[in-house]
Computed example of a mutant assay.
Amino acid sequence: MGHDTARIHHVGHIVENMAQAISLYERLGFVVPPPSCPAMPRREGAPPEPFGAANTHADFASSFLELATWVKEGDAGSLPADAHLVPLEAPAEVLSLLVERIGKTSVNLAACLDRFQGVHILMFSSPVIDEVAGRLAAAGVRHGGVNTVRRAAPEGAKVPVETVRYLEIDGEGPDARPGTVAEGRVGFVADLDPDVQGARRLDHPNGAVGLVEAMVCVADPELAAVRRRYETYLGRPAQQEGPAHVFDLDGATLKLVPSSRLETALPGERPSALPALVGYTVAVRDLALTRDLLRRNGIPVRETPSGDMFVPADIALGTVVVFRPAT
Score class of each variant (00 low, 15 high):
residue 7 R to K: 06
residue 8 I to L: 03
residue 13 H to M: 13
residue 19 A to C: 11
residue 22 I to C: 01
residue 32 V to T: 09
residue 41 P to D: 07
residue 53 A to G: 06
residue 59 D to C: 15
residue 65 L to R: 05
residue 69 T to N: 08
residue 72 K to Y: 13
residue 79 L to P: 00
residue 85 L to G: 07
residue 90 A to V: 14
residue 90 A to C: 02
residue 91 P to E: 00
residue 93 E to N: 07
residue 94 V to N: 13
residue 94 V to C: 02
residue 94 V to S: 09
residue 95 L to P: 04
residue 103 G to F: 11
residue 108 N to A: 14
residue 111 A to M: 14
residue 115 R to S: 12
residue 117 Q to D: 03
residue 118 G to Y: 00
residue 122 L to K: 00
residue 125 S to C: 03
residue 128 V to R: 15
residue 129 I to Q: 11
residue 136 L to E: 11
residue 141 V to W: 04
residue 141 V to Y: 01
residue 142 R to M: 06
residue 146 V to A: 01
residue 148 T to M: 13
residue 153 A to L: 06
residue 154 P to F: 02
residue 155 E to W: 08
residue 158 K to L: 11
residue 161 V to Q: 08
residue 171 G to E: 00
residue 175 D to I: 10
residue 176 A to E: 03
residue 177 R to I: 09
residue 188 F to S: 07
residue 189 V to P: 04
residue 191 D to I: 13
residue 202 L to G: 03
residue 202 L to N: 01
residue 213 E to R: 14
residue 222 E to N: 03
residue 222 E to I: 02
residue 230 Y to N: 05
residue 232 T to M: 06
residue 233 Y to C: 03
residue 242 G to K: 03
residue 246 V to N: 09
residue 247 F to M: 07
residue 249 L to H: 08
residue 253 T to H: 10
residue 253 T to L: 14
residue 266 L to V: 11
residue 269 E to L: 03
residue 273 A to K: 09
residue 275 P to M: 04
residue 282 V to G: 02
residue 283 A to M: 07
residue 284 V to H: 03
residue 288 A to I: 05
residue 291 R to Q: 12
residue 291 R to Y: 04
residue 291 R to E: 07
residue 292 D to M: 05
residue 296 R to I: 08
residue 302 R to E: 05
residue 304 T to N: 02
residue 307 G to L: 11
residue 309 M to H: 09
residue 311 V to Q: 05
residue 311 V to A: 07
residue 313 A to H: 05
residue 316 A to W: 09
residue 317 L to C: 04
residue 324 R to L: 08
